[in-house]
Computed example of a mutant assay.
Amino acid sequence: MHDNQPRTIALDALPEVITRYLTAHRSHDTATAVTAFTGDATVVDDGHTYAGTAAIEGWLDRAATEFTYTVQLTDARETDADHYIATQHLEGDFPGGTVDLHYRFTLRAGLVERLVIEP
């Protein structure tokens, strides 16, 4: 019986495409980060939905310049082969100064189809 509860996995056990996205996003490498997404991907962040690679690329560019912060991957969970949650701890000059964000990934054919970022 599978209850679809996410189970903790080693940080380095996340799929390559997720690691590629997180690493590229952290280093403000938008060109590499956007390669992690399907052409029809959606990203939901801070109450906004970005659909398609052009919108996602614009969101990544804005996110890279809006605030200065450090990022540390603190937790990784797997629900099934296509659903992962990566938790990152951010500290910086944004309102509140620190936050733990959950990056909820849905994969399709080895790429990110949907990403929801929420506290």
Results as ranks from 00 to 15, higher is better:
His25Asp: 07
Ser27Asp: 15
Asp45Trp: 01
Thr32Pro: 07
Tyr50Glu: 04
Asp29Ile: 04
Trp59Asp: 11
Leu60Met: 12
Ala24Tyr: 09
Arg20Trp: 01
Ile18Pro: 06
Ala33Ser: 06
Ala24Leu: 06
Thr49Cys: 13
Arg20His: 13
Thr38Glu: 14
Ala36Ser: 15
Thr23Tyr: 04
Gly58Trp: 02
Ala24Cys: 01
Val34Glu: 02
Ala31Tyr: 00
Val17Tyr: 14
Leu22Gln: 11
His48Glu: 07
Thr53Pro: 02
Asp46Ile: 00
Thr23Asp: 10
Arg62Thr: 14
Ala51Gln: 04
Ala55Pro: 01
Ala24Ile: 05
Thr38Trp: 13
Glu16Thr: 13
Thr53Arg: 04
Glu57Ala: 15
Thr23Val: 14
Arg26Lys: 11
Gly58Lys: 10
Gly58Cys: 06
Ile56Gln: 03
Thr38Lys: 09
Asp40Pro: 15
Gly52Lys: 04
Val17Thr: 15
Gly52Met: 12
Asp29Phe: 12
Glu16Pro: 00
Thr32Asp: 02
Phe37Val: 09
Ala41Met: 09
Asp46Glu: 07
Ser27Phe: 13
Arg26Ser: 08
Thr23Gln: 10
His48Phe: 10
Ile56Met: 04
Thr53His: 01
Thr53Ser: 05
Tyr21Trp: 08
Ala63Trp: 05
Thr19Trp: 11
Asp40Arg: 02
His25Val: 09
Thr32Asn: 05
Thr38Phe: 13
Trp59Cys: 12
Thr53Cys: 09
Ala31Thr: 12
Thr35Ile: 09
Val44Leu: 03
Val44Met: 01
Arg26Asn: 10
Gly58Ala: 14
Ile18Arg: 11
Tyr50Asn: 01
Phe37His: 11
Asp29Ala: 08
His28Gly: 01
Thr38Tyr: 14
Glu16Tyr: 14
Ile18Phe: 03
Asp61Leu: 06
Glu16Gln: 15
His25Gly: 01
Ala55Cys: 10
Glu57Ser: 15
Asp29Leu: 03
Thr42Phe: 06
Ala31Glu: 15
Thr49Val: 14
Gly47Tyr: 05
Asp40Thr: 15
Gly47Arg: 00
Arg20Asn: 14
Val43His: 02
Thr42Trp: 03
Tyr21Cys: 00
Val34Ile: 15
Leu22His: 05
Ala63Val: 10
Asp45Ile: 00
Asp45Leu: 00
His48Ser: 12
Ala24Asn: 07
Asp45Ala: 00
Ala24Asp: 02
Thr30Met: 02
Ala54Met: 03
Ala24Pro: 13
Gly58Glu: 03
Thr32Arg: 07
Gly52Asp: 07
Thr32Ile: 06
Thr38Ala: 14
Tyr50Ile: 02
Asp61Ala: 15
